[in-house]
Amino acid sequence: MLYDKVKIIPGLVVFIGLVTFPIWFNVISGKATPAPVPEKSLIAKECVEPTQFMRTSHMQLLNTWRDDIVRTGGTRKGTTANGTEYVRSLQKGCMKCHASKVKFCDTCHNYAAVKPYCWDCHIQPKEII
């Protein structure tokens, strides 16, 4: 025999509702962002670091560039492991190959629901649609 059914059953329903939130929220919202396919560079054959490193740690790399160049007057010149030279710059380096923010940056950032604050300082490129 259950005592205080009137309070305990609704309480448990609320508990299960909260625990299963991601399950029913995904069903209700319906409009899932597709798995990201960032646009590959047509110009360069290799990025500044291996692809997997760039996938996981590009933000840390950009952060060290910023600290190095803006705060301690470091060099703009960088060289990949294979000896290719590149410019250590978001707009003049990265975006030379990955020109479209929408087709490159935003695909993964929207999917992972992250909002980097790059464009707080940098001027966001105008997209040619």
Binding site: F25, N26, S29, A32, T33, Y111, A112, A113, K115
Partner: peptide, 18 residues
């Protein structure tokens, strides 16, 4: 962590993250 389990993420979480 709901950001990893929902797609798209519920709007109120953006404020929390920020």
């Amino acid at each position: 962590h709901l950001r990893l389990f929902t797609n798209p993420m519920p709007a109120f979480l953006a404020a929390l993250e920020f």
